[in-house]
Each structure stands twice: as structure tokens, then as C-alpha cells.
Design a protein around this nucleic acid. Sequence first.
DNA 1: CGGGAATAGTTGAAATCTAAACGGTCTTGG
DNA 2: CCAAGACCGTTTAGATTTCAACTATTCCCG
Lengths: 154, 154
Amino acid sequence: MADEATTRWLDEREQAVWREFLVATLMLWERLARELADAGLSMPEYELLVRLSEAPGWQLRMSDLAGGLVSSRSRLTHTIGRMEARGLVERRACPSDKRGVLAAMTEAGYQVLVDAAPTHVTGVREHLFDHLTAEQVDSLGAAMGQVGRHLREA
Amino acid sequence: MADEATTRWLDEREQAVWREFLVATLMLWERLARELADAGLSMPEYELLVRLSEAPGWQLRMSDLAGGLVSSRSRLTHTIGRMEARGLVERRACPSDKRGVLAAMTEAGYQVLVDAAPTHVTGVREHLFDHLTAEQVDSLGAAMGQVGRHLREA
DNA sequence: CGGGAATAGTTGAAATCTAAACGGTCTTGG
DNA sequence: CCAAGACCGTTTAGATTTCAACTATTCCCG
């Protein structure tokens, strides 16, 4: 695919940016996960509840949910299974497609989300946005938007 | 910690940036991981070999390595164990501290790294840097640098 | 010097994630 | 209409990660 001779290597600046991106992203993720753990949720579980809270009827098709969360269908099945056992979510038959399954947030799930949200949002502020200028926020948004669009196509 | 009333919520722009950051980062990670899998390495394993390749004598203390990789000590122990079984790495006694262990890259490990590097670097270029302007690269580097510094302190 | 606290790394079990294969259901071209 | 193929979600097994002990060593302070 890419052989030694024709590879466009990263220059030192790019290497440094890439490493800082990797490291900061990992630390940020780990930190937010630790804070969320106090509320009894993992990052993916929190994002999942957020998606459902925004959906009409607090429910979404499994595969739409998986797509939005950048999760494999298999992983989502497991995650929903665990959350269903805790009563945060429930499965419903999909009226329009007998293959389909709807994941729906319960009232208990909504309560857990409401409890976790202030701490989580505060964490995102304190650990990310508070350290960025307005220009950096715009730049980050534009950059990640482009990267995301590219990866969604390919 | 942060209660409902005093939380500084994210405005719509910030929410959008945060979500795009999360999603793009996950997609990027997943894509690079898939490409690296062809070379028989996971992302953490690749980064681990890179760190060792930069270290004097191709070796580092376990905890220094864990710190650099943003990995728990336990995870590193397991990862090194598996890589040692594959012959990519070996453990050595630490001369200065009898508690310590040095992780050292083998010649075979170096070969695997050299094989994987072109594909991986090309992926980082194609999926990240090729979509960023020079200004966005600078901005991203500065932003992640600040976030990283903050998280290292706290 | 001595003992308590901190540090380094490992261990083993439980939780989570990945990967491949499977059973239903839909869809579409002929 | 009806097979062939695509799609949906699940399942299972294996790999990886987390979490909480645990051992051994070093550090620190009286």
C-alpha cells in the first residue's frame, strides 16, 4: 500500500502535533470517564442516553444509534443489554421493520442522565473549553468537521 | 460537585464542536486501528514500539512507558506480556531499582515497527493532516498542548 | 538505624470489546 | 412472483481492559 520509499512522512512539527493530540485526547477521555463513573455511567453509555434524549419518543433504531455513536452493532447490542438489565433503557419491537429493534430510554434512564449531566458538562468545560480561545474552538470545530466528513465517506 | 443550578452549560456551538470532536476522534482511531491491524499491531502496541525506538538502548522503565502512553500500569503489564510472547519486546532487570523492570524492543519488534510505519503514517496524513490547513494544524497543536498540560497537572 | 508510608510491577477475576458466523426479514432484478 | 443478496440485530468465543488485591523494594522521617 504505502512503501518505505514513497511515504510522505510527518515533519517534526506534525509529529509533535499528532502526539500531543493523541496524548491529550486519551487523558481527556480518561478523566471524563473517571468523573462519570461516580454517576455510574461510562462515556459510551452517557452519549447513548444523550442521543436517546434528543430523539422523538426517546427512542431510536439500534443501527441508527450505533451509527451516531460510532459503535459496532455488536458492541451496541451488549451495551444496551447491560443498560436494559439496569432499567435505564428498554427494547421495543419496530413497527415498520420486523428485523428492527428500538432502543428506548426509560424514566429511570432519564434521571440517571439528568444526574450525570452537570458533572460531565462541567468536566468538558474545565478540561477542554476553558483552555481554548474562541479562535481555537472555531478552528477545532472546522478541522474535526472536515475530518469527520472525510471518514464518513471513505 | 456541579449542581444543576450553577453548571455552566455548553452553548449550541460548543455542543456541536464537542460532538464533532468526539465522533471524528472515534472514527479516526477506528480507521487507523483497522489499517494497523494488517500489520498485526494495535494502536497502543504501535505507540509502545515508537516510544521504545526513541529511547536510549531501545528500553524504558515500565512506569515511564506507561506514563508516556497514558496507560495504566496494569494494562501495560498485560500488553508487554503479550508482546513478549510474540518476541517483539523483552523484559530486563533494572540495575538501579530492584523493583523496576525495563521493557526493551527486540530486533524483531523493530522490524514489525518498520513494516507498519509507512502504512500508519500514510493513514495519519490521509485521514487527518490532509484535511487541515496550516493554521488549523498550529491551532490544534496549541490547543491540545494546553489541554494536555492542564491534565498532567491535575 | 527502624518502621511506616509510598512506589513498582504483577496477578487474577470480572467486565467489556472484537470478530466471525448465524437466523430472520427485507428488497430487488428478472 | 421469487430467488439471490443485502440488511438487522444477536450470539458466541476469544481477546483485551479494568479493578482490587498483593509482593517486593525504596523512601522518609523521627
